[in-house]
Amino acid sequence: MAIEVHNVSKSFGTFTALDDVCIRVADGALTALLGPSGSGKSTLLRIIAGLESPDTGVVTIGGNDVTGVPARSRGVGFVFQHYAPFKHMTVAGNIGFGLSVRRRPRAEIQARVKELLALVRLEGLAGRYPSQLSGGQLQRMALARALAVQPEVLLLDEPFGALDAQVRSELREWLRRLHDEIHVTTIFVTHDQEEAMELARQIVVMNEGRIEQAGTPRELYESPRNEFVMTFIGPVNRLGDALMRPHDIQILAEAGPDTTEALVHRIVHLGFEVRVELTLPDGRQIWAQQTRESAQELELAEGQILAVRLPELREFAA
């Protein structure tokens, strides 16, 4: 189901969480709401779910105005940041909760729970209690619980925020494949631009309660509409008011007409990527991204003076 948010504003006391926000999410899409903390992304997600009501504006799901519809009647699956497990119920009890609330026959609930346990790879843990599960397992249980009632929309609030790095990347990959399988319209909130770019086909960048830009990861990276988007998505160097991407800085073996001198003051090896920290003749510092190969070819060493070609600088109107 497509989701549309029209001119939604929301304040908590004197704090404006959302300021006239509009977004449109296509049916079956996987969309990220990306922004720093306090940007309003979680509030927007909660408004779509019906867990908060907007001060003004309209939310539609599948073309129907659901602004006044309570959360329990919206058909929205929600996965909470800390999973909100029902601690006094088993894994099976948690997953079957939505169905048992709907008074489905016991046999049907059991069959559906079994199916979901397989989907989220928690077979054999049906009788465990949440306190006996790891973070990644809780996350998958929360997802299965939300999916059990076959929601038209799946909303995830910082779904990987509380997990360690390895589990996080595994789950990301898994969620992406799951979305390919079940095609439920999905929106997730994250403050991690890499996570957003890796998972989502569409990213909505938010800041201070407003939408800065919405588009595909590539659009946002290559043609950011403003300075916030450029600095939030991908690495940048700042020279005065101008910005440039570190991988656009060329390091050359020989000086040319459009090059400038720079002193290598530090080299950081990050595997495939080599980060070269440079000091320009006027004392300003920038860093350039090189591949391992090119760094080897250039025989880069700390303290060396070499030639760099700076890219066309990008400036945004303030």
Binding site: R72, A84, A142
Partner: peptide, 11 residues
């Protein structure tokens, strides 16, 4: 959020 989760599941 446990109560909110239950609400979003239809309770």
């Amino acid at each position: 959020s446990m109560e909110e989760a239950a609400a979003s599941l239809g309770a």
